[in-house]
């Protein structure tokens, strides 16, 4: 593997003292391609992802990225680190009463000063880039529509555009397809894979659907009970692994 972009060491998270959700995760993410994390609900996949950009405070361990320990950052330094990490959410998390354009531009909020955001005087380069991204995600005509007028698949496309608007060095995607129908799910994954591939942005994606994970990821991490139990390329994962990750085997 080439030089990793993200290196997690001994990451522990306890929401209640003495009840760890993550039991000392060690993980290095390469600078290319999609890494899929699979595992049953409540196993700490989402917590792991949120520890990386500190939406959740890690209890112990280090998260190294670009020579900084993300777990130790505070204030302005933390915000500067966050803006280099894009995130796509399961429920899209768009600001529903703002227009599609404004939602995409919220990806620049780590860069622009308050007055510009307030008066909507974004730099010309940002506007051009936002339009280019809207074209790229296939929503060129929707810039001035309100976000709550869109369908689920369209909203997730806006979510992806917003995350890429940050010009991120790393993209986190937390169950990006779980709220979508199967066909839209594939389309959204395809879009995300293509755009991040073109931009050369590595992706960590939490995903329920093993087939989707195998189809798009270069590497699959299997988690269960807050521990990593599988780590390898998609074709290495077999039914025995799946039954270890999810428990039981009748469903396979």
């Amino acid at each position: 593997m080439t030089q990793p972009i993200l290196e997690i060491r001994g990451l522990v998270k306890e929401y209640q003292p003495g009840k760890p959700v993550l039991h000392g995760i060690d993980l290095a993410i390469g600078a290319q391609g999609i890494t899929a994390i699979i595992g049953p609900s409540g196993t700490g996949k989402s917590t792991l992802l949120r520890c990386v950009n500190r939406l959740v405070e890690p209890t112990k361990g280090s998260i190294m990225m670009g020579g900084q320990d993300l777990a130790r950052l505070r204030g302005g330094a933390l915000r500067a680190a966050r803006r280099r990490i894009g995130m796509v959410f399961q429920e899209y998390n768009l600001v529903e009463r703002l227009s599609v354009m404004e939602n995409v531009l919220t990806g620049r909020l780590g860069y622009v000063p308050l007055w510009r955001a307030w008066l909507r005087r974004y730099p010309r380069a940002d506007l051009d880039r936002a339009f280019a991204l809207l074209d790229a995600v296939g929503l060129p005509e929707h810039a001035t529509r309100r976000a709550d007028a869109l369908s689920g698949g369209q909203r997730q496309r806006v979510g992806i555009a917003r995350a890429l608007m940050q010009s991120p060095a790393l993209l986190l995607a937390d169950e990006p397809t779980s709220s979508l129908d199967p066909r839209t799910a594939v389309e959204v994954m395809e879009l995300m894979a293509r755009l991040t591939g073109e931009a050369g942005v590595p992706v960590i994606v939490n995903i329920h659907n093993v087939e989707l994970a195998k189809r798009f990821a270069v590497r699959i991490i299997g988690m269960t009970g807050g521990r990593i139990v599988f780590d390898g390329p998609p074709d290495a994962i077999g039914n025995d692994h799946l039954s270890e990750i999810y428990g039981g085997e009748d469903w396979i």
């Binding site: 909507r120 974004y122 936002a130 001035t144």
Partner: peptide, 8 residues
């Protein structure tokens, strides 16, 4: 040039 915001 495309309009980014519908002026209110």
């Amino acid at each position: 040039m495309r309009r980014a915001f519908a002026p209110n």
